[in-house]
Design a protein around this nucleic acid. Structure first.
Lengths: 236, 236
DNA sequence: CCAAACTGTCACCGAACTGTCACCATCTGC
DNA sequence: GCAGATGGTGACAGTTCGGTGACAGTTTGG
């Protein structure tokens, strides 16, 4: 496996582990596979990072000092910003009770030590595929809309629709969670990136442009405006 | 665990296994946990069922006659109707290569035999939570009222109800604790926020508007006024 | 190097939403 | 039945919010 440069659009993985050596090992392997990696050494730090960066996948060590992993997991799941993240618990124990408790608490998956690098990466990718379908070349479908992330192509029914880069990412975000209401801030984060500063009204303008293009054939508007809250895309 | 009747809204699980005894065992346990269950004895039958019923979760045995589970998994993933399903591979072998191949092929999860019933159910539920987020959480229901916080949407029976932001939050508060009597002050706190000061009669006006909208189809008023105390919403 | 495509911001407008009031119907205790 | 308290509601005016055309700056592709 060759070393890849993490790109701006690469998936973001948060590693939560109290042992520096573990963090370094995981980070190294994940970065080598092209992921962007953040680390935290305890639950408290993890929650801070999550609030700021909204990682796509969270690797959470079971044995944390002070607060147990399961408790951290529960806290993470209680945060609205973390709804879009997948949580993978990492544990030295393979006792079934732990597994069950972990999953019931809201973890999405579970890896038992010792694990191989390929298993780790497979798990991370499998979860990523679920949480961020558009980042893994999947084809998203909502109603008569089809978005092929790999081919960078959008169809409305039989019609081929051309979108600019921003509108494309915007539509991909909306379609990834159809029905979910995205606030303007969440969309800015997701589509424009965390550190870019643009006026939140800019989202409106792009939504307008997106609507115009999507409905150029006289179709019904698939984007719903929720006054005071944001936008959502919907099947009907 | 007591035996539950599978309800109309219950999640649908497809069990694919060639051994009748296995199918029966899995079906029994899943049904006992309240799931609706379908079965198929090979990949071909599975694909037929998937096309017709679009199950939420598919439990796929690795060792199938004629066509291997991994091949079936690939075929399932190729079907657009199966995009909304989670695939859990069930295997007797725990070799890592299989796991990796399974996940890379598009399986969402993996259970190794022997597994316990609680592990099975935990896995199914965890995957369900991902695939059908609305079936496990943010939806409030009281009588024929349904409020989906994620989608910011309200239904009265089959009718789609449109509410303004304030009415939406007001209804959400009432529904969150159905039966509880909310004083005007408590509602002001909860819906308008602690530091905003508005006349407490304003609550009355919004309750009135809410009632009008909720009963626009001639339905019964779901909001009860408790003279001298406040308001409550109720199932009846 | 130029034209076309794409972006972000602004200003303006209409629609939606809000809070308050006045007036009336009910209810409560006496 | 009466007076006072309580709750329902239509009207209204002020405010906020979202849609959109215009425009200028920037990037892209040939």
């Amino acid at each position: 496996m060759s070393r890849l440069e993490p790109q701006a659009g690469a998936a973001l993985v948060l590693v939560v582990d109290d042992e520096p050596a573990q963090r370094a090992l995981l980070s190294y392997n994940l970065e080598a596979a092209g992921f962007r990696v953040l680390t935290a050494q305890d639950g408290e730090e993890a929650l801070l990072v999550i609030a700021e960066e909204a990682p796509d996948v969270i690797l959470l060590d079971w044995m944390l000092p002070r607060v147990s992993g399961i408790e951290v997991c529960r806290q993470i799941r209680a945060r609205p910003e973390a709804q879009g993240s997948a949580v993978i618990m990492v544990s030295a124990r393979s006792e079934e009770g732990d597994l069950v408790r972990g999953l019931e608490t809201g973890a999405d998956d579970y890896i038992t030590k010792p694990y191989s690098v390929s298993e780790l990466l497979a798990r991370v990718r499998a979860n990523l595929r679920r949480v961020r379908p558009s980042q893994s070349g999947a084809v998203l479908e909502v109603g008569d809309l089809r978005l092929d992330a790999q081919a960078h192509r959008v169809h409305r029914g039989a019609r081929d629709v051309h979108l600019g880069p921003t509108e494309f990412r915007l539509l991909a975000a909306l379609m990834e969670r159809s029905g979910k209401v995205w606030s303007r801030e969440a969309l800015l984060d997701r589509v424009w990136g965390r550190d870019i500063y643009v006026d939140s009204r800019t989202v409106d303008v792009h939504i307008g442009r997106l609507r115009k293009t999507l409905c150029a054939g006289g179709e019904q508007d698939p984007i719903r405006t929720i006054r005071g809250a944001g936008y959502a895309i919907e099947d009907r």
